[in-house]
Amino acid sequence: MLRKAIAVAGLAGLVAAGTAVPAAAGEDRPRLRRLLHTLTAEDGAPGALAAVRDRRGRTVLTSGVGDVRTGAPVPREGHWRIGSITKTFTATTVLLLVEDGLVDLDAPVERYLPGTVRGNGHDGRNITVRQLLQHTSGLPDYLDHLGIGRIVENPLERHDRDDLLALALAHPPEFAPGTGWSYSNTGYLLAGLVVEAVTGDPLADVVERRVLDPLRLDDTGAPGAATGLPSPHPRGYVRLDGTLLDRTRLSASTAWGGGDLVSDASDLNRFFTALVGGRVLRPGTLREMMRTTEVSPEYGLGLRRVPRSCGAPVWGHAGDMVGFSTLSGATRHGRGATVMVNVKPGLSDAGEQRLKDAFDAALCDD
């Protein structure tokens, strides 16, 4: 469980940030305030949060509620499931092992996981570690075959990672390795197994030792078998056939190295500003992480290049997990931003775009 969160688990009554409403004269970040308000007033999100970190300090805005039953606001320092943003942490861990000489990005998966990737046209001898991290392996995504609906309907069901891998490998490749791009949680399950194979330690321990501890990310960690969230936290919801369902308690066993981490906005902004700012990886390694290809023009190794309206793109990642949807990233000049809504699935189509617009506003507007 999270280190700092355990110490403050009884402090569920922490005061939340002032609720965002349409901006009045003189208020800062009026576009961001309006977008958060629309997300909760029109687009189906019970609550929304935006946090900005730059050289001037930190700003947190919230709108709506973190708990529809009690009407409690979204907590400023709340923990939530960050979903696929976990992939950036996993990729960073792999790249630190590359720097140590324990992993070769262009080595076949077979070197580290002999015999693991076999059958139905899959062969670990032809898939590299780099391709796992860049989603160019051609491996099917096990979530496409498990189905989000099953997770929504059975949120506490546990899934063995060997079974998830077998589910993916029961289907043929999407394409020959290196010839296309297709988002695959299976690749990150294997990347986590590579980390464990070369270190002899559980993935969560290696991520903590190599990434979380050095950056003092005390509110970030893997939940293990726990199905709840550390306090304080917003509740997580899904909307099914028009009905809002509470899915705060959830087994993260379907996600693991591709999506199981819990964090908060402060830690996410600290992580991305440090990573993109060159304070985690060596310059050459960071360039590899940000290097895109013809078949992967926007996605590097666990990092996505995201356009913004006010200048150069930022590097970050999206994270969807049952109950929560998040966008987080940073500029090379030290500005980090995180936006979150506590519903997934269930945001309207307009709301999905509005969440992206809120991320842009958090990165561009003063």
Rank of each mutant, 00 (worst) to 15 (best):
V74N: 07
R56A: 09
N342L: 03
T19S: 15
R56M: 00
T128D: 08
R81F: 08
Y183K: 00
P232Q: 00
G329I: 01
A361S: 14
L14D: 10
A197H: 12
G119N: 05
P313I: 15
M1Q: 15
H122C: 03
W315K: 04
A17C: 02
L164F: 10
P307D: 07
G13Y: 00
A17H: 07
T86C: 00
I148M: 09
T179D: 11
C364E: 13
A48D: 04
P22G: 08
S263F: 02
L113K: 06
P108T: 00
R308K: 13
Y237M: 04
R31E: 15
G259E: 02
G26L: 04
L286R: 10
V8I: 15
H122N: 01
K356G: 06
K356S: 06
G336D: 13
G115I: 06
T199V: 06
S296L: 03
P30F: 10
N154L: 12
E294N: 05
T38Y: 14
E208W: 14
T243Q: 12
N342C: 10
V129R: 07
L281N: 08
P114K: 09
T243N: 03
T59L: 15
A204R: 13
M290P: 01
T116Q: 10
L229W: 12
E208D: 15
L146A: 02
L347S: 05
G180D: 04
V341Y: 12
T93R: 08
H171Y: 14
L327R: 15
P313Y: 13
T93W: 10
L96G: 05
A361M: 12
S325R: 15
G187Q: 04
L327P: 08
D205G: 05
